[in-house]
């Protein structure tokens, strides 16, 4: 057994162990913490699979933000934990569920083992065309040139999810601020950490964003870090959560999708195809889209965590 295989095997077993813990353990909080560790291990797995972009995204969003979101919910729902687990299904359901899950696993394992060799790949097609996009990172080229439509739609998914969360507000507090937990202790340590870390986070977030054109990184990872900095500010009580009725907030939120669509239309005019880039201007247009997306994604990711408006608009 080579060291590399041993490492992979250990990683796979740890992943399964942590996932098993997250699924099977009794306490919800323990399960969520297990899931966060699972997310960290997954990041390592991505690194082993040579997906550094994915590893960064997984660490930032898959493990970090999702974990934070679930942990917050688990804490809030502590009082009903006992009642919710009372209606546990009977043995018959468990056996049926295990059978269903087991057969899906077997089906997939079979599929994995019968995948064709050599594997089909679009890597050659990407390599052939990447020069025209003027970006160095193939993943960025796919996200913002070859399959730019998916990325545009993805930003719309985020906008819709945000609207969906806002729609859960009580009518009386519509337009108000999300009821995100706030510590108003001005001499507290969280306060202190936010004041020191946030500016540093801004520089690092900007760097991760910008490096994405040629190296692993990009707007989603950068935006996640910036969103985390924003959440830190709000959590520490240095800034209040925004009013969802705020015109400025909405402008920043829709800026990214709007610029994306406009650049797409510009392409259909200049390059003869929607989301097409005229010769020599690809990078300029891609950078324009990414720059516009950065603040929008930062705000939306933060707002997704903050939840529905809860507090009335103070006058």
């Amino acid at each position: 057994m080579t060291p590399s295989l041993a490492l992979n095997l250990a990683l796979a077993l740890l992943l399964l162990g942590m996932a098993g813990w997250a699924v099977l353990v009794r306490s919800t909080q323990a399960a969520v913490i297990g899931f966060m560790v699972f997310g960290l291990l997954l990041t390592l797995a991505w690194a082993r699979l040579d997906g550094l972009d994915v590893a960064l995204t997984e660490a930032a969003i898959g493990g970090g933000l999702t974990g934070f979101l679930l942990l917050g919910a688990a804490v809030r729902l502590r009082s009903v934990e006992h009642r919710a687990t009372l209606q546990a299904p009977g043995l018959a359901t468990r056996i049926l569920a295990a059978l269903a899950a087991g057969s899906v696993t077997l089906l997939l394992a079979f599929a994995v083992l019968t995948l064709p060799s050599p594997a089909p790949s679009l890597a050659p097609a990407v390599a052939e065309n990447i020069a025209m996009t003027q970006v160095g990172n193939p993943v960025t080229a796919v996200l913002l040139a070859f399959r730019a439509l998916d990325t545009l739609l993805e930003t719309l998914v985020l906008v819709l999810a945000m609207l969906g969360i806002w729609s859960l507000a009580d009518d009386r507090v519509w337009g108000g601020r999300p009821g995100f937990a706030i510590a108003h202790d001005a001499s507290g340590i969280l306060h202190y950490a936010a004041r020191i870390l946030v500016p540093i986070g801004v520089v690092i977030g900007g760097y991760i964003f910008w490096i994405g054109a040629d190296d692993p990184g990009g707007k989603f990872q950068g935006a996640t870090l910036l969103a985390a900095m924003w959440l830190l500010l709000v959590l520490a009580g240095l800034r209040d959560a925004p009013r969802v009725s705020s015109q400025a907030l909405r402008l920043w939120v829709v800026l990214g999708p709007l610029v994306f669509i406009s650049v797409g239309l510009l392409g259909s005019w200049l390059a003869g195809s929607f989301l097409g880039y005229p010769q020599g201007y690809a990078k300029l247009m891609i950078v324009t889209v990414e720059l516009a997306l950065l603040p929008s994604l930062t705000l939306i990711l933060g707002l997704l965590i903050m939840g529905a408006p809860k507090r009335e608009i103070g006058r």
């Binding site: 070859f146 439509l149 195809s273 097409g276």
Partner: peptide
Amino acid sequence: YVLGGWSPPLGI
């Protein structure tokens, strides 16, 4: 309609 002029399988 081929988006961005990138024809499948690379494009959409």
